[in-house]
Simulated assay, not measured.
Amino acid sequence: MADVFSLDNAKEKLEALDAFIDAQVSKKDGLIAVLHRAQDLFGYLPSELQLYVARKLNIPASKVYGVVSFYSYFTQEKRGEFTVSVCMGTACFVKGVDKVVDEFTKQLGVKFGETTPDGLFTMNDVRCIGACGLAPVVMINDKVFGHVKASDVANIIETCKNSERSE
């Protein structure tokens, strides 16, 4: 069953977001910072939350949506605990990232833009991570894995699962 977002069940998170918004020197100039904080708190920016932010900042909802849809950092879909970002830039592609992608797809059972049924992993493709010397590169959340081979994928996935269990 799909996760249904509701602001009604998020009182503490909304209070934290409200405090952050209230601390902004200029509410209209703080949109990106507010969206970062909202995504940190909620994990993603569904339309109901975007509308809430627009009302709190007294700006058009279309402006909020424009920023959310423009920047690849922001997501409108719920992500897994681990976001697997695979660099598809030229250096990574030349070094065989396609085989790495195939292995992640096989092991996780999802394609780019999808989340595993257990909610642990979301697969994303990115244009460039900026670590071309480490190609092919995979980034999981904030951790960079360089010189990744298809044979490394199972170990990377297991490392993530083990770190999730130990927290």
Rank of each mutant, 00 (worst) to 15 (best):
residue 82 F to N: 12
residue 71 Y to M: 15
residue 68 V to G: 09
residue 82 F to R: 14
residue 92 C to R: 07
residue 75 T to P: 01
residue 124 N to I: 00
residue 82 F to H: 09
residue 98 D to S: 12
residue 74 F to I: 01
residue 109 G to D: 10
residue 51 L to N: 13
residue 68 V to P: 05
residue 94 V to S: 05
residue 116 T to Q: 12
residue 95 K to D: 10
residue 118 D to W: 08
residue 120 L to N: 05
residue 74 F to E: 01
residue 84 V to G: 10
residue 118 D to V: 04
residue 116 T to A: 10
residue 117 P to C: 01
residue 67 V to P: 00
residue 57 L to Q: 08
residue 54 A to R: 00
residue 72 S to H: 14
residue 49 L to N: 10
residue 113 G to S: 05
residue 66 G to I: 11
residue 74 F to R: 03
residue 103 E to G: 01
residue 97 V to R: 00
residue 62 S to A: 11
residue 68 V to S: 09
residue 95 K to R: 15
residue 118 D to C: 08
residue 121 F to V: 04
residue 117 P to L: 07
residue 72 S to L: 13
residue 109 G to T: 11
residue 116 T to G: 10
residue 88 M to C: 00
residue 127 R to Q: 08
residue 58 N to C: 07
residue 75 T to H: 03
residue 120 L to F: 06
residue 52 Y to I: 09
residue 90 T to K: 13
residue 96 G to Y: 03
residue 87 C to L: 06
residue 128 C to Y: 07
residue 122 T to N: 01
residue 109 G to W: 09
residue 69 S to R: 11
residue 67 V to F: 11
residue 76 Q to R: 13
residue 97 V to H: 02
residue 100 V to N: 04
residue 73 Y to L: 11
residue 54 A to C: 05
residue 75 T to N: 07
residue 122 T to I: 10
residue 71 Y to I: 11
residue 74 F to P: 04
residue 94 V to R: 13
residue 57 L to E: 12
residue 96 G to L: 13
residue 91 A to H: 14
residue 101 V to C: 11
residue 92 C to S: 10
residue 65 Y to R: 13
residue 91 A to F: 02
residue 108 L to S: 04
residue 92 C to G: 12
residue 59 I to A: 03
residue 74 F to D: 07
residue 128 C to S: 11
residue 50 Q to N: 10
residue 113 G to I: 03
residue 73 Y to A: 05
residue 57 L to S: 09
residue 120 L to R: 06
residue 111 K to Q: 15
residue 103 E to K: 15
residue 93 F to A: 08
residue 101 V to G: 04
residue 120 L to T: 10
residue 113 G to A: 03
residue 78 K to Y: 02
residue 81 E to G: 02
residue 100 V to P: 11
residue 60 P to I: 04
residue 70 F to L: 14
residue 93 F to L: 06
residue 97 V to Y: 07
residue 105 T to W: 03
residue 76 Q to V: 02
residue 51 L to G: 09
residue 59 I to R: 08
residue 94 V to W: 01
residue 122 T to R: 06
residue 89 G to W: 03
residue 85 S to W: 00
residue 66 G to V: 06
residue 128 C to T: 04
residue 106 K to S: 09
residue 50 Q to D: 08
residue 95 K to H: 15
residue 57 L to G: 13
residue 104 F to T: 05
residue 48 E to K: 15
residue 99 K to C: 05
residue 101 V to E: 03
residue 54 A to W: 10
residue 86 V to P: 07
residue 121 F to Q: 07
residue 76 Q to H: 12
residue 113 G to R: 01
residue 97 V to D: 02
residue 109 G to H: 09
residue 52 Y to T: 06
residue 112 F to I: 01
residue 94 V to C: 05
residue 82 F to I: 09
residue 106 K to A: 14
residue 63 K to P: 00
residue 99 K to N: 14
residue 90 T to N: 11
residue 105 T to R: 14
residue 93 F to Y: 14
residue 98 D to Q: 11
residue 60 P to R: 11
residue 51 L to H: 08
residue 56 K to W: 08
residue 126 V to L: 01
residue 70 F to Y: 15
residue 65 Y to E: 14
residue 62 S to R: 14
residue 91 A to R: 15
residue 108 L to D: 01
residue 73 Y to H: 15
residue 113 G to Y: 02
residue 106 K to N: 09
residue 106 K to R: 14
residue 76 Q to N: 04
residue 60 P to D: 10
residue 115 T to W: 01
residue 64 V to M: 06
residue 101 V to M: 08
residue 77 E to I: 02
residue 96 G to E: 05
residue 128 C to L: 06
residue 66 G to Y: 03
residue 65 Y to G: 01
